[in-house]
Computed example of a mutant assay.
Amino acid sequence: MSDYNTTGFTNPSNFILLGIPGLERSYVWISIPFSSMYAIAILGNCTILYVVKIEPSLHGSMYYFLCMLAVTDLVLSTSVLPKMLSIFWFNCREIDFSACLTQMYLIHCFSVVGSGILMAMALDRYVAICNPLRHSAILTNSLVAKVGLVVVLRGSLFVLPELFLARWWPYCRTNIIPHSYCEHIAVVKLACADIRISSYYGLFVALLVTGLDVLCITVSYIQILRAIFRLPAKDARLKTFGTCISHLSVILASYVPALFSFFTQRFGHNVPLHFHILIANVYILLPPTLNPIIYGVRTKQIRDRLLRLTSQKVT
């Protein structure tokens, strides 16, 4: 295993992930909910993809965006959890320098992609409620594919400078990362250089790109609520608003832990390190775990199809 020294190297071949410093004795217990959440995320998102694929009535823009979100969640959770569990179970803390940067890129890239998909889903809900007669004509399969491509390219290109900067910095202080995965700021803080460019660019991506998504989602839902309140019947208002509950729940599950983790890392200097790392892990794991559950429970078409599949297997 690599030496845990702190001097005498530049751009090490390996980094050492400490996991959650201070909670080493609890790793087995911590791994139980984390591994359970990962299993639920894998099973739930794969189920969503399978159900949408085999059910013709689900071949529409909202469910295509949901499939994109499921793929994003699978990539995001898989890029983190296997290595994290190897630390908890086998004390396997080494990670190759290139593998660390790849993990960092995947985490931040697909976080941005997931945010873009949530924005696209909000626009889909806006068209479905505010212009329902033209929903199918506006959100064609071709447009959905183009939106998905733009969202992926946006995430890939905006995060790419973070990767180049992180690879460019000289690392001559230590190769020990006090984290359970290669988070961007946790990695570049090890560089023996002025990393303000990396820090400012990460802040730029978070505030501009994700902030723009949140703004678009907010504007979409303001228009949606205005359209809902114009409906004459209370039952119609509740039913229409009910079609947005799943999406709103997913938004809260995605953005609240992410924003909390982001701001505590940069400004919460009095927050204990182990608490910050736990929140950062929840930010990665919670949305992939909850998203398929929320849509599976709240979406009647998916729920009915799952019940039919289950009944067929039982009989």
Score class of each variant (00 low, 15 high):
Leu143Tyr: 05
Val144Tyr: 03
Leu149Asp: 00
Leu149Val: 09
Val151Ala: 15
Val152Gln: 07
Val152Met: 12
Phe158Ser: 03
Val159Trp: 03
Val159Glu: 12
Val159Phe: 05
Leu160Asn: 07
Pro161Ser: 07
Glu162Leu: 15
Leu163Pro: 01
Phe164Leu: 15
Leu165Phe: 11
Arg167Asn: 11
Trp168Ala: 11
Arg173Thr: 12
Ile176Phe: 00
Ile176Ala: 01
Ile177Lys: 11
Pro178Phe: 00
Ser180Lys: 04
Ala186Arg: 06
Val188Met: 14
Lys189Ile: 12
Leu190Gly: 11
Ile195Trp: 07
Ile197Leu: 15
Ser198Pro: 03
Ser198Arg: 03
Ser199Cys: 09
Tyr201Asn: 07
Phe204Asn: 08
Val205Ser: 12
Leu208His: 07
Val209Thr: 06
Asp213Thr: 05
Asp213Ile: 06
Val214Asn: 00
Val214Ile: 11
Ile217Gln: 02
Val219Ile: 15
Ile222Val: 10
Ile224Lys: 06
Arg226His: 11
Ala227Met: 02
Ala227Lys: 05
Ala227His: 02
Phe229Gln: 13
Lys234Tyr: 11
Asp235Arg: 12
Ala236Thr: 01
Ala236Tyr: 05
Thr240His: 01
Phe241Ala: 14
Cys244Tyr: 04
Ile245Gly: 00
Ile245Arg: 02
Ser246Thr: 03
Val250Ile: 14
Val250Trp: 00
